[in-house]
Simulated assay, not measured.
Amino acid sequence: MSDSILIFDSGVGGLSILTEVRKALPGVHIRYLMDSEMFPYGIRADGLLAERIVSVCKAAVSSFSPSMLVLACNTASTLALSQLREALELPVVGVVPAIRVAGEHCRRTDNLCFGLLATPATVSRSYTQALIDDFASDCRIERLGCSELVDLAEQHIAGVDTRAALHGLIGNWLAQHPHMRHVVLGCTHFPLLRDELELLWPEIHWIDSGAAVARQSARVFRGIADEDNSLSCNWTGTQEPEAVKRFLSQLGPLKDAGRLLV
């Protein structure tokens, strides 16, 4: 087993989690894995996805022997977290929308209203409602399911200016709720658009799970932080993710990159 962290997502969304994990564990080698052959997950059946996520992650753990696996995807965490924890002999960290954090912010500001911006599947899933019931039952929550933002995040990583499209997708929703000052970014893709979101709507406090996942990762990491700040990139499918490799190279030296055969 190597002293490394494997971070998994269907596409580029997990880069938002990886950025926070890098801050929390700067001396650990991080390997980023995308199941780009099956992207986007939002159009796939849950049963197919659960089987696929377990298969890909088990193959990657077998190939790379990481010290820890981070499921940097709400869908993957919902469908496969418990299965992977049973199947793998290493810590597996998942991600959920930052409902609890948003509720705490709202209570401190005496404005018991916040938004939940996620994919349609995450907005409607029972686990999301369970989080609301447990941590924000006293709040009014305005929900918007928008799968198009996933594609915008992928484009943004590639250098495309997506501000006009972003305004067209969520501008009316925000305008309809002028008292909403906190919005949960309930998909790991969405924080990659934070710079444009803050530019367009600076009055909104955008909340995501990245820092919380990083703190949990630091708590359960079993390896040794030996000042190896390199990164690696792997993917399924045939298309090489040049934009992702460029993003990773800004965080540290890119050690290796290659396709994972599943």
Results as ranks from 00 to 15, higher is better:
59 A>G: 08
35 D>T: 02
60 A>Q: 12
59 A>F: 02
34 M>R: 07
26 P>V: 14
36 S>T: 15
25 L>Q: 09
43 I>S: 13
42 G>T: 10
61 V>R: 07
29 H>P: 07
21 V>Q: 03
58 K>A: 01
62 S>W: 09
18 L>P: 10
36 S>N: 15
47 G>L: 10
12 V>I: 12
58 K>R: 13
51 E>L: 01
29 H>S: 11
59 A>R: 14
18 L>G: 06
51 E>I: 00
35 D>M: 07
53 I>G: 00
48 L>R: 03
15 L>V: 10
17 I>L: 04
27 G>V: 14
25 L>W: 05
58 K>W: 00
24 A>Q: 14
46 D>G: 04
20 E>H: 11
57 C>M: 06
13 G>P: 05
46 D>K: 15
31 R>Q: 15
61 V>C: 11
50 A>I: 04
46 D>C: 08
42 G>S: 11
60 A>P: 08
43 I>N: 04
51 E>M: 01
39 F>W: 10
16 S>G: 05
54 V>H: 00
62 S>L: 14
18 L>I: 07
19 T>F: 08
15 L>P: 08
45 A>T: 08
14 G>K: 02
39 F>I: 11
19 T>S: 15
29 H>W: 04
26 P>Q: 15
45 A>I: 05
53 I>T: 03
19 T>R: 15
50 A>S: 12
39 F>P: 01
30 I>Y: 08
25 L>H: 06
42 G>L: 08
53 I>R: 02
59 A>P: 05
34 M>L: 07
23 K>V: 09
34 M>G: 03
25 L>Y: 03
27 G>D: 15
20 E>V: 03
34 M>E: 12
61 V>G: 05
40 P>D: 04
44 R>Y: 10
30 I>P: 05
52 R>V: 01
46 D>P: 15
